[in-house]
Design a protein around this nucleic acid. Sequence first.
DNA 1: GAGTGGTCTAGACCACAAC
DNA 2: TTGTGGTCTAGACCACTCA
Lengths: 254, 254
Amino acid sequence: MAQDETVWVDDLLAGLDRTGPVPLYFQVSSTLEEAIRSGKLPAGARLENEIALGQRLGLSRPTIRRAIQELVDKGLLVRRRGIGTQVVQGGQVTRQVELTSLYEDLKGSHHEPSTTVLEHDVRPADETTASALGLPPGSDIVYLRRQRSTDKVPVAVLVNYLPMDFADITTQQLEERGLYQIMRNRGVTIRIANQKIGARRAEDDEAELLDLEPGGPVLTMERVAFDASGRAVEFGHHCYRPDMYSFETTLVAK
Amino acid sequence: MAQDETVWVDDLLAGLDRTGPVPLYFQVSSTLEEAIRSGKLPAGARLENEIALGQRLGLSRPTIRRAIQELVDKGLLVRRRGIGTQVVQGGQVTRQVELTSLYEDLKGSHHEPSTTVLEHDVRPADETTASALGLPPGSDIVYLRRQRSTDKVPVAVLVNYLPMDFADITTQQLEERGLYQIMRNRGVTIRIANQKIGARRAEDDEAELLDLEPGGPVLTMERVAFDASGRAVEFGHHCYRPDMYSFETTLVAK
DNA sequence: GAGTGGTCTAGACCACAAC
DNA sequence: TTGTGGTCTAGACCACTCA
């Protein structure tokens, strides 16, 4: 077991790049993460202590600590004072709920997502929407209603409200990419999002769009997203076919 | 605006306690958090830069950085290189989904939670449960089914499976406290949990217990929780009345 | 007592944004 | 050019766990 650790630590040492733009702590943490997910570092394996690890890699202790902390936050490692650092037990290596769109989620899981734009226009915001986006009531906003499918099976009905900066997004763009990717290409990066997940009965048109029995259950998500400057750039409320989609999270106590 | 900052920064300086067990970065971050949530630091307000803040408080830059980072992770502050640190815009100061039980959630929101234990026995684990808890198939486990209400309105039906360490928990204890609190009192602290949130139709007995129409929608959560050593200490699948409960999260891009 | 992680310091250089 | 946060170093002392 100690053997395994030594092996990949040497790999890691060989792979460190001090000239490139990638932070050292990130190089260490991502190599470690790969080793854990691949099983090279099995569940329960103990890491060397932080000082020794640092010396072996030619890094300072704070840098090593930061790398380890990243993985603790992801729920892959557990640290205990006086004991050491261990790989978490069990098969509980789920990926975090990322700040990505459904489109990227589906694409990442080897499915072929497709989008049908149902509605796409400019209209005055109602009170809820204006408040969520931090705009004066009645301001114009971009309204968007899409049906998202994977492998030709409908998964979700997505309703979004966007500030007028995005009025020139075309319907074609929306059918080819995820909303967040379109935004990123325009220099807008989502930084913070508040989500609320719930359930309710499907409306009649939703049931039809999702190929569900009328009044059947749907999973719902409401989200307000903010860019780096803290400006609200998206408000949406979506509903999902519960047999096709669910939300997975890893929580780590602080 | 610069006035406000100066004022509370001085308060903070006065309040720092270097003798006690509370880390300095935590004292700083929690004071800052209080100032933001109370509105003393309004949305959009810019903080002093990290060096100046450190000098004024008599702290090193890494300590200040750590304090600020805590609030960035909570979605209360936004940092931009070359620009500075600002309080996030809008009213989006939701609290994180904490690693707490429903009981504590409800109690924290000024309601009076109550619990009815419906079933409580020891039985062999089925395959799914044994695998989730990392036990050999057929091992004995503690089975638990509870109805949770708030202000006498039913909110959830909770089904839990626990390792045999917890076989001596009494039904009375379960009706008086949350499960996590009982575990904590026995020296077991939840450190990591994997959750999956979804929706489905209510079963007939669930509909009755939750006072719902038969076949109506319920919000579901499945969770496996691990203690500090990485051992699985709880597996559960719960269902919630969607008009009484939902899950709120703040996501922060890394 | 020996070993571990938890905290803290006092510097340094860099990349990026704004003027 | 100036100011900001992002990264990194090389130490230090402490609290906790275990033998």
